[in-house]
Structure formats: structure tokens, C-alpha cells
Write a protein that binds this DNA or RNA. Structure first.
Lengths: 147, 147
DNA sequence: ATAAACCCTAAACCTGACTTTATGTCAAGA
DNA sequence: TCTTGACATAAAGTCAGGTTTAGGGTTTAT
């Protein structure tokens, strides 16, 4: 059994955040001793899951929903699966967008690297895409195409 | 020259957002005709840049800073480069975190797929990591290791 | 000349995820 | 005994990035 202060240190999370999660119902049925929260191993495991789900972008409400489903047994397997499938699709889209943004950023880094060397953007402005260095052209195309 | 309504449709952005961007100083020196905003080709190009920078996670303030630097000429090349270098590093970190989250989600999808087939989690709970299907084990390891 | 369809501003409101503040309880050590 | 430190709550505050509202002006087609 751990106090809130101990858990705070273990997980590098502010106490206020843990209390907030509790208030939002992320630790249903947590034990208390004369009003004081006692985190069990089970609660720590729950907190580990919460951290994973947060990284993948779930809102507190969705995490709460998931935790509730977990207490309801096999009848909610398909709900839980759907939740994860949906989130997987969103993350995959997100990563594609980020890859594009990353290419754009690489292009911009090259651009200003070159501008710094030249002291101006004249050469860059005159350079039509076909005459960019090949590896930069790829970034440029990627960064400037489609959505 | 475009009105705010036309730009709104071209970029699929609410009018209120465009006005908000303007208020935040993202279109310095935009023309007006008897009070009404007139977006030039230049402003549209600026908006394209804004969209890119937003995807890569820059705050409005940082975008404004960048736009200001652009009007200040060659003396700010290195500032601009640093801005993009910094953002590039952040996105790269972000993508690694997302890849982990994605592996976790894939693992969870497999988990509930299996639970649905079995009607319970008994087999899953008894299964020690070494006995997971190899491609799932990889996901599991990835999703459960380190930070 | 009047109604519809645009445009404008300032200011209030919204959301999510916390954090801060004000106030109070309780147990252990000097 | 008294102070310190860790715990508790409720309620208000914070932040970004918008959105909504209230109150007006302008332009265009009939």
C-alpha cells in the first residue's frame, strides 16, 4: 500500500494530478484509511495503463470509460477493442501528418542553412524545384504536395 | 484579392479562425477596403505556411515570431533556422513516443480480438510473454519497455 | 428602397487538463 | 505542548486556441 506522496514520487506525477485523476473516477473503489488514499498494486497497474492511454491521446473521459468497461467483464470486450481500433487509426493518420511536417521542417532547415551561407535568399528564390539537390527535392515535394 | 469568406472556403477554415489569426498578428499589413479585409496572394501563401507550422505543433506566438523575422531580412536567418531545428527535434521525439503508443494499441487490439474469440481472458492471463505469438511479442515488448 | 447576404468589432464564453488557494484534520517528534 | 509535515476538500484560477454573441455597417439583386 502506498500513500499519494509515495505514488507521486514513483511516477513523477504531481500529487494534484493524482487527486484529479481520482476525482475523475480513474481509480474506482480505491481504499481509504481514515480518509487517506491507499494505492494498492492494482491501482499502480491502473496508473501504468492510464499513462499509456494518455500518450496515445485518449481523453480522461475515454480512459474512465475503458476502466469501467474493464470492471464489467467479457460483455464489453468488443467495446474495448473498438476503442483501441479507433485510436489506432487516428494515431496512424497523425503519424503521416507528422512525417509530412517533419519533411517540411527538414526542408526549411536546409533552406536557412543555405541562406545563411549565401547571406541572402537570392539563389534560393531563383532555384526552380527541378534544380534543388535531389534529396532536398524529395523533402520539398513531400512537404508541398496534397493535404 | 479575396474576401474572408472566400478564403474560409478555399482553406476549409472558419471565418472566426481567420479573424482570430489576424488579431494575433499573423497577417501584418493586410490590406483593407473600407474596413473589409482583402487577402492577397501573398496572404494566402502566408496562410499555407501557417498551416504547415501548426501541424508541426508551433504555437500561434511562435508563428507570429517567425513571420516577424521574415520581414526583418537576413539578420534573422539563424533565428529562423534555430526555430526549425528545435521543432524538428521535438517532432522526432514525438514520433518515437507515438510509435510506442501505436505498438501498445496494436497489442491491445490483438488482446481483445483473442479475448473475444475465447469469450474470456483466462488463456491470455495464463500466457507468459515468452509464449505470445512472435509478432505480438515484439509489440508487447516495445509497448511495455522503458519510458 | 428594402431585404438578403456579406462584412466588422469587442467581449464574453468554451473546453480539457490541470494547478492553486484557502481551509482544515491528524500523527509523530523535540 | 506545540510545531512540522503529510494528508484532505471545495472552489477558483490558468492556459491555448478558438467560438459565440451582441450590436452594427455595407453591398447587391429585385
Amino acid at each position: 500500500m502506498y500513500t499519494i506522496g509515495q505514488v507521486s514520487k514513483l511516477f513523477h506525477l504531481p500529487i494534484s494530478t493524482l487527486r484529479y485523476y481520482d476525482k475523475e473516477g480513474l481509480f474506482p473503489g480505491m481504499e481509504r484509511q481514515s480518509g487517506i488514499r491507499k494505492f494498492s498494486e492494482n491501482d499502480l497497474e491502473r496508473l501504468r495503463v492510464i499513462e499509456c492511454l494518455k500518450i496515445s491521446g485518449l481523453e480522461i473521459k475515454e480512459i474512465k470509460q475503458f476502466i469501467e468497461w474493464c470492471t464489467e467483464g467479457p460483455s464489453t470486450y468488443s467495446n474495448r477493442k473498438q476503442l483501441f481500433e479507433g485510436r489506432k487509426a487516428i494515431i496512424e493518420k497523425e503519424m503521416k501528418k507528422l512525417q509530412k511536417a517533419l519533411d517540411m521542417l527538414k526542408f526549411k532547415c536546409w533552406y536557412y542553412e543555405t541562406a545563411l551561407e549565401d547571406g541572402n535568399e537570392d539563389r534560393l528564390n531563383d532555384m526552380i524545384p527541378d534544380h534543388l539537390p535531389p534529396e532536398i527535392q524529395k523533402l520539398y515535394d513531400h512537404a508541398h504536395s496534397g493535404k
